[in-house]
Simulated scan of single mutants.
Amino acid sequence: MAQQQIRLEYDSLPAVMPSYLRAATTLSGGLSTGQTIPDMVAELRGREVRAEPLAKYRKVCGFSHAHHLPVTYPHVLAFPMHMAVMTDKRFPLKLLGLIHVRNEITQHRSIGADETLDLEVAVGGHREVAKGVEFDLITRVRDHAGDLIWEETGTMLSRQKSSVSEADKKSAKKQSKTDALADAEHTNEWQVPADIGRRYAAAAGDYNPIHLSPWSAKLFGFPRAIATGMWTKARAAAALEPELTRDAYTLALAFKKPVFLPSRARFGYTLTEAGADFALTNTQGDILHLKGDVRYL
C-alpha cells in the first residue's frame, strides 16, 4: 500500500530557532529495518526577497551587486523550510550529525531580485551506502506564472550501520592524492577567516554549531570549526559567475574534506565550451575540499 504524502503548507516562513531547539533535544534517530523516510512536501507561496539580507549574503560570499539573485541564494530563501521538514516529528533521522555530501543546483533562468517566488521542499526515501544512508532534499522555485525557474538537490548522509558489503566499503575509502588543480587554467588563494561560519550564519540563517566556534564544533567531534559547505559553494559560484556566458546552467559539486577555520585554500577552474570545471584544495594541493562543474543548459 502506497504511503500517504505528508504536506506542510506555510503562509509565512517557519521560524528557524524552534527547529534548532528540536534538533538539539532530539537524542536519537535512525531507520529501523524496512523503514524509509516518508514522502514529505512543504510549500510556501509568495516569498519576497528582502534587500538587506540579500546584500549581507552577497558581501559574505563575494557576489557583486546585480539585479538578479546569486545562483545559490534561493537555497537561503528555502532554508527555514529545510529545517522545518528535517525536524518534523515524522522525519526519522536526527538532524544534527547529517553530512551534506553533494549539491546540485539548476538555474533555468536568472531570477530578478524583485520577483515574488513560490517555494517547494520535498524529501522521501533513502539509499544505503558504505557509510550509512543517503537521501535527497529537493527544493524547487517557481515564478508567478508557475514556471519552474530553479531547482536544487542536496544529498545528505546519515552515518549508521549499513548492509553495503565490506568490499564496497573499502572501495569507497580509496581517494586519489593527485593535486586536483594541477591542470587548472586559473587559480587563486582564499583566506578563510575564523569567523566566516558566524558571518554566514548571520546572512543565511544556518546556525549549525559545527560552523560557529571551536568549542561548539568540539561537541560534535571536530577539532576546530569548519566552513559551511554552502558558503564554499557560494564563494565558488561568485568566483565563476563573471566568467559564465549564459545564465541557464547546472552547478554541481561534491563536498570532500572539510575546510577548518581559520585556513587558506586554493581555488581553481578551467573554462570549457560546456561551462567550467573547478575544485578547492588546501594550499599544498594534497587535500581536496570540493570538486564540481558548471554545465550550460
Rank of each mutant, 00 (worst) to 15 (best):
V164T: 10
T187D: 05
T178R: 14
N188H: 15
G221M: 00
A239H: 15
N103P: 02
W190E: 13
E128I: 08
A234C: 05
I149V: 15
A239S: 14
P214F: 01
E152G: 04
E134T: 13
G124V: 03
A238H: 12
D143M: 08
K177P: 04
D118T: 10
A234P: 06
L148I: 14
K170T: 07
E241C: 07
K169M: 03
D143S: 01
T178W: 11
K218A: 02
S171F: 08
A239Q: 09
D183R: 13
T232V: 08
Y249S: 11
P193N: 10
N188Y: 12
F135I: 13
A122T: 09
E151Y: 11
E134C: 06
T228M: 03
S158L: 03
R199M: 14
S165N: 06
Y200P: 15
E115P: 00
L137V: 15
A236V: 08
Q175K: 10
R235Y: 09
G124H: 03
N103K: 08
I149P: 02
W150E: 03
T106I: 10
A203W: 09
A227S: 08
L157M: 09
E120G: 07
D179C: 03
G197E: 13
E115W: 00
R159G: 14
H186D: 12
L181Q: 11
L117W: 00
K161N: 07
L212T: 13
V123P: 06
I105M: 03
W231P: 01
V164F: 00
T155N: 06
A182C: 12
A204D: 14
R127T: 01
V133S: 09
H126N: 01
L137F: 13
A184Q: 05
S110R: 02
L117V: 04
A204V: 15
H144G: 01
S110E: 03
P209W: 07
P209R: 05
M156C: 01
V192R: 12
S162H: 02
K177Q: 07
M156S: 04
R109N: 05
A225S: 09
T178L: 04
R127K: 10
T187N: 13
T232N: 14
S165T: 04
A248P: 06
A239R: 15
D114C: 00
A237S: 08
T228G: 00
K131I: 07
A184K: 08
T187P: 14
N103Q: 06
D179Q: 11
W190P: 11
I196L: 11
E104Y: 01
V141S: 12
Q175R: 13
P214I: 04
D114W: 00
T228A: 01
E185T: 14
G112R: 02
G125S: 08
G125C: 03
E241G: 04
R127S: 05
Y200A: 15
A202I: 13
D147C: 08
P209H: 07
A239Y: 15
K177E: 06
A201H: 15
I138Y: 01
E241H: 13
W215C: 07
A239W: 15
E152W: 07
M230T: 14
P214T: 08
G146T: 11
F222D: 02
K233V: 04
I226G: 00
E152C: 12
A145R: 10
E134R: 04
A248V: 07
K173H: 11
Y200I: 15
